[in-house]
Amino acid sequence: MNCNEEFIIKAIGKLTIEFNFDWEQQRKVRDCLNYSMYNYEVHTLEKSLIKGDMHEKIFLYIKVKKLAGYSDSTLNHYNYTLGKLATFLNKPVSTVTTNDLRMFLILNSEGKKPSTINSIIFYIKAFFAWLESEDLIPRNPARKLEVNKVPKRLRKALTVEELEKLRIACKDNRERALVEFLFATGCRVSEVVDCNIEDLNLNDNSLRVIGKGDKERVVCFGDKTKVYLNKYLEERNKDNDPALFVSQKFPYNRLSRRGIELIIHKIAERAGFNKSVYPHLLRHTMATLGLQNGANLVTIQHLLGHTDPATTQIYAENSLENIKHEYKQHMNC
């Protein structure tokens, strides 16, 4: 991007903030600026003497949150987003303004979903709130940032028939054990990645899981899952890896998040699904089918590892089959 283009983008961003331009108005302003600047060349002022301290503050923030038990995945998201912000601003954190942050969001929001933009805003707000609480800045410029309204969507769980199709499409015991394990335990894919064989208690069909925030909980699985886990583990004679699920090729390393996602995707393709099927969908399915079959909401909350009951309540509110069942039972007069 040359200086002319950078100037036009920043000018449009500033005008959009001041006058609330829509996309068509932004396009007209862009055309006018391009025409007016023909045969002119913009040059930036020398800023080599300006020293920003955001990168070192971000480094400290990440270390503090790591000590607080944040997962590596969460910390990576923080580091990536805040790193882009630091590079964009290149100024001391104490001088950052609300408009600086809005400009960054405008230039980094094009083509992104509202939920993705909200995540970026969340990371920025959390970082500057921490800076303020630590007395590292005089005021919090992110306080006025507003998140986008995201329309609520039903969590689309698999039906019993679809779940059975997925099971039938498994080509070996490893795949079947993985599908059964994801559904039966309702574990997050990151929790399955970290799971070791020694975490299993095959005597009472339970599993010790370390979830978000380094919190430990116990989840359960049925005899069907136990059968396929045993079959899979009996075939594991080529490795000594402690991981519960490993790759099929040498050096038989622990399956990664992406590896598990690819396996589920391939099984779904074989099963003939015309919609996206992913590991977290099996977690949704466990919760939804459990509630439909009469499981207690508090029990589902514990099994899923939700700290806030409101998160689990979404499954009860959005289960269409549950609504239909309750209506037939109590309101169909």
Rank of each mutant, 00 (worst) to 15 (best):
L289V: 12
F245G: 14
A268W: 08
R270A: 14
A243M: 11
R270G: 14
L297V: 04
T299E: 09
K226C: 11
L244M: 14
A243C: 06
T285D: 13
S276F: 08
L304S: 04
R270Y: 08
K226F: 11
E235V: 02
K215N: 06
K275A: 07
E269Q: 14
D241A: 14
T299H: 05
L297F: 00
L244A: 13
K231M: 05
Y232A: 07
Q292P: 04
E216M: 14
L229P: 15
G259V: 04
A287Y: 06
P242R: 07
V218D: 02
D239P: 02
E216Y: 00
L289G: 11
N253K: 15
A268L: 09
L297H: 08
K266C: 12
D214F: 03
G272E: 01
E261A: 11
N240A: 01
V277K: 10
P279W: 03
K212F: 10
A271K: 06
T299L: 11
Y278T: 12
H284S: 02
C220E: 00
H280R: 06
L229V: 12
N230R: 11
K215R: 13
V219P: 07
L291C: 05
L255G: 12
S247Q: 03
Y232K: 07
G222H: 03
F245Y: 14
V219Q: 03
R270N: 15
N274H: 09
A310W: 00
G290L: 10
T299W: 03
Y232H: 04
V218H: 01
N253M: 04
K226E: 14
L289T: 10
K231Q: 05
G259I: 05
P309K: 00
M286H: 06
L229M: 14
T307C: 02
R283L: 02
L291Y: 04
P242W: 01
L282N: 05
V298Y: 10
Q301V: 07
H265G: 12
L255E: 03
L289Q: 14
K231Y: 07
E269R: 11
G222L: 02
I260L: 06
C220T: 13
R254E: 09
G272M: 05
K238L: 13
D241N: 15
L262A: 13
L255C: 10
Q248G: 13
K266R: 15
R270I: 09
L255Y: 06
Y278A: 09
G305W: 08
I263M: 08
K231W: 01
K212H: 10
